[in-house]
Nucleic acid binder design. Structure first.
Length: 264
DNA sequence: ACATTGACCTGAGAGC
DNA sequence: TGCTCTCAGGTCAATG
């Protein structure tokens, strides 16, 4: 699930539920999700503190205790957050639970355990270490930098858009949506695209990401002109009414409309 | 140096 | 019902 829009929705969820509450306890239920820190260390860093603010870079979410201490959350393919009361139990596959003094809890849930939780004292350094590119919503991302980041890849445009080193935040689902909106074939070679194609893609990145966040990243709440609600076996193109096709492109299942996105 | 593939993990759903 | 197989919105190390 969690691509940039999903993680941004998680960030706002955390903001609206957990900020400025005293952390009474931190329970790691599965050590396997911890990266570079023990459950004991994590507890001692967070206990008695409060989350003051949040940030996000690509698919990474940061909850800040103070300027030089951030909880790092990455969600893999199946992760999400759930804020719940005492009386309701933690969701299944809760890997980490933060207990607040007000009797509420924040669960980090991750069924497939492909996500990770850690600590950093410097977000910029972590971003550099992970080799993440500019965030897809970064205001500094202009058409020129987009062209030089994405339009120079030798492989498919699909893999260029998904590369977290070029642009941070796009995954399989939203990349398909962006390609559909811009009418570009997922297999098209990135460095053979015209300026017109790249400009359409650039605007689609912004449009799709912002629209998805507004829809709280719920596929059912996306505009019906989007590919996403039709992205399934036997799905029909919302633009031309033709049959959608799906095939593997750089290892990931890609849905597209062969008529609207025909040219490679 | 860059791009693509396979492995990592678990569970849901399809097909028999 | 119960088994097996395939696939899933991510990322990294190994391979081409």
């Amino acid at each position: 699930m969690p691509e940039l829009p999903d993680v941004e929705v998680f960030r706002r969820y955390l903001d609206s539920t957990c900020l400025h509450q005293c952390i009474a306890e931190v329970e790691t239920l599965d050590e396997g999700v911890l990266a570079g820190i023990s459950s004991r260390q994590l507890r001692s860093k967070l206990k008695g503190q409060q989350f003051q603010r949040t940030r996000r870079h690509g698919k990474y979410l940061f909850a800040g205790v103070h300027e030089h201490l951030w909880l790092v959350l990455h969600f893999g393919m199946t992760g999400y957050l759930k804020y719940f009361k005492d009386c309701d139990g933690a969701p299944r596959h809760t890997r980490l639970r933060v207990d607040f003094r007000n009797g509420h809890h924040l669960a980090y849930v991750c069924q497939r355990r492909l996500g990770e939780v850690g600590i950093t004292n410097d977000i910029e350094r972590l971003v550099a270490e992970k080799g993440l590119g500019l965030d897809g919503l970064n205001a500094d991302l202009g058409i020129d930098s987009f062209k030089s980041l994405v339009g120079t890849a030798r492989g498919s445009i699909k893999s260029a858009l998904m590369s977290q080193r070029r642009l941070a935040g796009l995954g399989n689902i939203y990349t398909d949506e962006i390609l559909f909106q811009a009418r570009v074939n997922p297999r098209a070679k990135a460095n053979r695209l015209t300026d017109g194609h790249l400009e359409r893609l650039f605007h689609s990145v912004k449009d799709v990401v912002e629209t998805a966040i507004q829809a709280k990243a719920q596929p059912g709440d996306m505009p019906s002109t989007y590919l996403l609600p039709h992205r399934e076996e036997g799905g029909v193109c919302p633009r031309c009414g033709g049959s959608l096709r799906h095939e593997k492109v750089s290892g990931r299942t890609s849905y597209y409309c062969p008529r609207c996105q025909g040219t490679t």
